[in-house]
Design a protein around this nucleic acid. Structure first.
Length: 558
RNA sequence: GGCAGCGUAGCUCAGGGGUUAGAGCAACCGGCUCAUAAUCGGUAGGUCAGUGGUUCGAAUCCACUCGCUGCUACCA
């Protein structure tokens, strides 16, 4: 048993905020949402107080870009995709305590509080900067809204932040013949005044903090330390735009909004507060944010690392009194047939599409077994089918099915008495405990792929045990012995069902009911309990559907 | 261009200075027939991208080369 289950720690599971500008694909799921959910479900089951929050980033530039492209207000884009996210969480079993948006009054208020606090502490100052201005449209242009010819490769449609042709990073003023994406007019440089966050002040504190981290993924830590060592510079935190959270002070006049990069990060805190208000305990969020014994974990993709290991910690340091990340287990990318899944490039089907064809646990299993924890991993639909048919159905589903079917036939659906245990029986019962303990430790360390593999390896052991003791034969010659084997196998299944629950919540709940246990499996606790002889088992049906493919059918008829 | 990571069996991935390099799946052989043609055991399969170093010893460390990916901070 983990120590955590006794202490009842507060665990904040903070998950990346998706832009509400398009559907999510399996890359997003594998990168952040699924690992976060596995982690959260484990901790809930282990008796910890979990708060899992995120929401739609509705002020991100991709949202406004899409809105302008379609000629509709940004809110319309948000209203289209935010409900899709909620539907996806529901269907895939991503168990948020709150999935909100950055458009709530609460969020604006928390952003204001953080801003004022940083201002008060001297980490925010006013400064002048130059930016392109579209005189026809009457507004300043974010970098992405300026197009022109790339000075490096001559590509004519390079954006102000980057050239899509040669991939280089650009500043808008480097573009040859710049033009506004809004009107096509040649923009002019104008001076504008903004608030800046004094990120540079945190150079040394961040370095000290990062160097003291242990247990973090190597690529996360190396990258972050390298990033800070190169030198941090202050960033503007306001911009000239109408879509966004208003700046809390009016020093700069009207027409300024908070820059999304800082505003969206504050969402973790504002969502926690919103959850607390809805729960009727407005101060409840403090247990996760202010108590140093709490653990805060940020689940993100690798493209988001500096924001969560550098900028957000700097904001937290500047604010004071709030917990720094306990870990940022950023994942690499899932590629599809070698290509990066990407909303903007249309690679990777929307995740909801997969759920029309596959059971949610099948999708969860295939992704969890192949999480890009250390390096990019590749995924294909054939791989999902293979994982489902050859591993999930064959190893775990079949174990449950064969044991329950035999028990129903031989012992009228009641848990048989244990009888005298030999070394093989005892090895399985002890192995179940060891496995559960090991899986728990691996999940706590966010080695989710290894945790799943450990559980599946034990399922194979249990299948091997059945081959070894052959209860279907013993049922005829030595029913007591057959009963013992089935009892032991039920012990293994009971433990496996707990171990697999974070990964396979839907089917694990079913198995819980097949085992004749009442209530939700999550309340069962992270422990290997023994089945009660005489207890009545539920009627079992196969847990997972085998997915038929043309190739599979060809093999059958051959 | 700079930085980071990766390149390990047919496939997807672990491992990571020290006895014969691992897993799952696929292949092949055998067993079993309770189970969704499911399962169990076994066999075979890799000069760990290449070259050169360090070392008693390198897949593991270093350098270089080739290939892939990501980041490069006003997308977050």
């Amino acid at each position: 048993m983990s120590n955590a289950s006794q202490s009842g720690r507060h665990i904040l599971v903070a998950v990346a905020w998706p832009y509400a500008n398009g559907p999510l694909h399996l890359g997003h799921i594998a990168g952040a949402y699924l690992p976060a959910d596995i982690f959260a479900r484990y901790h809930r089951m282990a008796g910890n107080r979990v708060l899992m929050v995120s929401g739609s980033d509705q002020h991100g530039t991709p949202v406004t870009v899409r809105a302008e492209h379609e000629g509709v207000p940004p809110q319309e884009i948000v209203d289209r995709f935010h409900p899709q996210f909620l539907q996806l969480w529901h269907e895939l079993g991503i168990s948020f305590d709150l999935f909100t948006t950055t458009g709530t009054p609460n969020h604006a208020e928390v952003v204001r509080d953080v801003f004022l606090r940083l201002l008060e502490h001297g980490y925010i100052y006013k400064g002048k900067t130059h930016q392109f201005f579209d005189a026809q449209a009457g507004r300043f242009l974010p970098d992405r809204y300026v197009e022109g010819t790339c000075p490096h490769c001559g590509y004519e449609r390079a954006r102000g932040d980057q050239c899509d042709h040669c991939g280089r990073t650009l500043d808008p003023d480097q573009l040859i013949r710049p033009r506004s994406r809004l009107t096509g007019a040649a923009p002019e440089m104008r001076e504008t005044e903004h608030f800046f966050f004094k990120l540079s002040a945190f150079q040394q504190p961040l370095l000290d903090w990062l160097r003291g981290r242990t247990g973090w993924r190597k690529h996360v830590l190396n990258f972050s330390i390298g990033f800070v060592e190169e030198g941090l510079h202050d960033r503007a935190i306001t911009r000239d735009i109408e879509w966004g959270v208003p700046v809390p002070v009016e020093d700069l006049g009207a027409g300024k909004r908070m820059y999304v990069w800082i505003e969206a990060l504050i969402g973790y805190l504002s969502a926690s507060k919103e959850w607390a208000q809805e729960a009727g305990e407005p101060d409840a969020w403090r247990a996760w944010w202010e108590d140093p014994a709490a653990g805060t974990y940020y689940f993100i993709g690798k493209d988001n690392i500096p924001f969560h290991t550098i900028i957000w910690p700097a904001i937290l340091m500047g604010h004071g009194g709030l917990n720094l990340p306990a870990d940022v287990p950023a994942n690499q990318y899932v590629t599809f047939k070698g290509e990066k899944a990407s909303k903007s490039q249309g690679v990777g089907e929307p995740a909801l599409g997969y759920l029309e064809r596959f059971q949610p646990d099948a999708v969860r299993y295939a992704l969890a077994a192949n999480l890009p924890e250390n390096s990019d991993t590749d995924m294909t639909e054939a791989e999902i089918i293979r994982r489902n048919n050859d591993e999930l159905v064959a190893t775990w589903g079949n174990l449950v099915n064969r044991v329950l079917a035999m028990t129903h036939r031989t012992f009228a659906g009641r848990v048989p008495p244990a009888g005298a245990l030999d070394h093989r029986d005892e090895a399985i019962i002890a192995g179940a405990r060891t496995m559960l303990h090991q899986v728990g430790e691996l999940i706590e360390a966010v080695h989710l792929k290894a945790a799943l593999a450990a559980a599946m390896a034990f399922a194979q052991e249990a299948n091997g045990y059945l081959s070894d003791t052959e209860p279907w034969k013993a049922a005829k010659s030595d029913p007591a012995r057959a009963g013992t084997s089935l009892y032991v196998a039920l012990c293994a299944i009971t433990a496996l069902d707990v171990a697999l629950y974070p990964f396979l919540p839907f089917s694990s709940q079913k198995v819980h009911e097949y085992l004749g246990l009442s209530g939700g499996i999550e309340d069962a606790g992270w422990e290997a309990r023994l089945p009660q002889p005489g207890a009545t088992l539920g009627t079992a049906e196969p847990l997972f559907r085998k997915i038929e493919t043309p190739e599979g059918e060809a093999r059958l008829s051959a």
